[in-house]
């Protein structure tokens, strides 16, 4: 097998690091660190987008790289850090499943995602198609992170990381979505974040905590 060109090697490195970051998000229990990991994920995504942009010469990818940098590396993490300080939530409670168990489930998910991606990437014609499996794995791992967390804050961070995975998947399958869609998604994420910020305060007002299992009971009195 001939060695890949250097920029593809770098892209594969970025993809592998994204996968590693997903796993560290899965095991991280401090919410501040979780947000930092999200920012790092955004930075890697930005680097990967730039690499693809340089390789394919598509102008709109540069724009989406800048958008990623502004929104996912700087904007949202700053917003989240402010929310953490205002709401005074620093730790998530014990996860639903213990750490090693979550990791093992995560590994199975990665195997599943790679199997799922194999036929799809066989059909794609982009040079970056082999990273599609990693994108799907990142999305599913973010799902798992959301499922295993109790606090609303970490679920939202996992939700944002899922959006990162979707973005990466679109890039590896088709060199990114059309610009209009991308702008729309970016705006959606920003608005969703603002709405969820308001939600946090409402939830805390009602239950004195951001623990979501309070929402599971229908009546106020047991």
């Amino acid at each position: 097998m001939a060695p890949l060109s250097f920029d593809l090697q770098l892209l594969n490195g970025c993809a592998a690091l994204l996968l590693l970051l997903s796993f560290s998000m899965l095991s991280q229990r401090r919410i501040v660190n979780l947000v930092n990991l999200l920012a790092l994920q955004g930075a890697l995504l930005c680097a990967a987008t730039l690499l693809v942009a340089v390789r394919t010469g598509q102008g709109h990818l540069y724009l989406s790289a800048v958008l990623t940098l502004a929104l996912k590396v700087v904007g949202l993490p700053l917003l989240l850090h402010r929310l953490i300080r205002r709401l005074n939530v620093y730790w998530d409670a014990e996860p639903v499943i213990n750490a090693s168990g979550t990791m093992l489930i995560g590994l199975l998910i990665v195997v599943f995602a790679f199997g799922l991606a194999q036929p799809i990437s066989a059909l794609a014609s982009t040079a970056t198609r082999s990273t599609l499996g990693i994108a799907i794995a990142v999305i599913l791992l973010a799902f798992l992170t959301m499922i295993t967390r109790r606090k609303a804050m970490s679920q939202v961070v996992a939700f944002l990381s899922m959006e990162n995975g979707l973005f990466f998947g679109a890039m590896s399958a088709t060199y990114g979505m059309p610009m209009v869609v991308e702008l729309g998604v970016a705006l959606d994420v920003l608005v969703a974040m603002l709405v969820l910020g308001v939600f946090f305060f409402q939830i805390r007002e009602q239950f004195d905590s951001l623990d979501l299992h309070h929402l599971e009971s229908l009546k106020e009195t047991e």
Binding site: N12, A15, A16, L19, L20, F23, L107, V110, V111, F114, A117, S130, T131, G133, I134
Partner: peptide, 9 residues
């Protein structure tokens, strides 16, 4: 993870 990444990439 190293093994899986090798198999995929």
């Amino acid at each position: 993870l190293g093994l899986l990444v090798y198999l995929l990439l």
